[in-house]
């Protein structure tokens, strides 16, 4: 099995998620593992991958790859796979990696399994494990055909340093016209505002069920009484109700507090991956079928507009003795 792992990077270093997938791949029986680093001015950082199990790192350094956009990356990876004869390509799930993986699947006519949380080799065949249907069932998935692609869920593996050095080899990219048509006008830069919710022992989080931005005060007041921080879903962050620095989930923060109170949050997988390690999860949602009820310790079916103010008051009374 010749495995290529797509290694994403940000502000001059390789992302941990990708290195975690790399070290998992390197632990598989009979796998020869290489990394791919694509970008502009990335030659320096590529070598790091050797410590996580890559024997070779293929680097494509090209101005066309400067912005984190998927399509030129599909071109570069497709050429690399063909040239080096990789049969397997792995990705750590991210906004960029998902688009690259899907594009590459079409280009190579290769099977793509996503959201995998584990991987093993059984009787010589690769088998992926994936929680499906809001994690209500676990599925074992396989691949048919010569080429296999997979996206791994955030947090599925930890990066393991095995030591070693990778040989860095550069290759050049040729890009399709359509791949260069989308352009980055303004690229995200890390917002570092306010205290981090990652260290908080208690997080009270709000979602679209709050109904309007002003209702975040219900969440803030409960958080204040409990001595905790405020979290939010992507839906309300995108809508401008709360700052991105408070977002919990796949494209936001990962938190593992003692207590997580989810208010008006449906509990989508992409939210779950950011908070499932909380010790105790309490969910308040008026829809008894909301996925969040599948993985909370206490599920309260009801209207947060009625429950939250009274709950905050009860916490206050209790503190007062």
């Amino acid at each position: 099995m010749k495995v290529l792992v797509f290694l994403e990077h940000h502000e001059g270093s390789l992302e941990k998620r990708g290195l975690a997938v790399l070290s998992k791949a390197a632990s598989l029986d009979g796998a020869e593992v290489a990394g791919a680093v694509l970008g502009a001015g990335v030659g320096e950082i590529a070598g790091t991958a050797g410590r996580f199990g890559a024997r070779t790192v293929h680097v494509c350094d090209d101005p066309a790859l400067e912005a984190p956009l998927p399509q030129p990356r599909v071109d570069a990876l497709a050429a690399l796979v063909a040239e080096e004869g990789f049969d397997t390509v792995f990705f750590a799930q991210s906004v960029l990696a998902s688009d690259v993986a899907a594009g590459l699947a079409a280009r190579l006519e290769a099977g793509l399994n996503w959201d995998l949380t584990d991987l093993l080799v059984r009787d010589g065949a690769l088998v992926g494990k994936r929680p499906a249907l809001a994690d209500s069932v676990y599925v074992e998935v396989g691949w048919k055909g010569e080429r296999r692609l997979a996206l791994f869920r955030s947090g599925a593996f930890d990066p393991v340093e095995v030591g070693g050095q990778a040989q860095v080899e550069s290759f050049s990219g040729r890009f399709e016209d359509f791949s260069l048509q989308a352009t980055m006008v303004e690229q995200a830069h890390e917002e570092r505002s306010g205290p981090s919710i990652e260290d908080a022992e208690i997080v009270v989080a709000g979602g679209r069920g709050l109904g309007k931005p002003e209702n975040f005060s219900l969440v803030e007041e409960l958080a204040r009484e409990l001595g905790g921080a405020v979290g939010a879903t992507r839906a309300v962050v995108d809508a401008g109700w709360y700052p991105y620095s408070s977002q919990v989930g796949q494209t936001g923060k990962t938190v593992s507090p003692k207590l997580y109170v989810a208010c008006g949050i449906s509990g989508a997988i992409q939210h779950k991956v950011g908070m499932q390690n909380a010790n105790v999860i309490v969910a308040i949602n008026k829809d008894a079928n909301a996925p969040i009820f599948e993985y909370c310790d206490l599920g309260v079916v009801g209207d947060l507009n009625e429950i939250l103010p009274r709950l905050t008051e009860l916490v206050r009374q209790r503190k007062a003795g």
């Binding site: 991210s94 989308a182 991105y244 494209t251």
Partner: peptide, 11 residues
């Protein structure tokens, strides 16, 4: 929205 905040992309 990506893992790092907001990008603006044109096509």
């Amino acid at each position: 929205q990506s893992e790092f905040g907001y990008d603006v992309i044109r096509a």
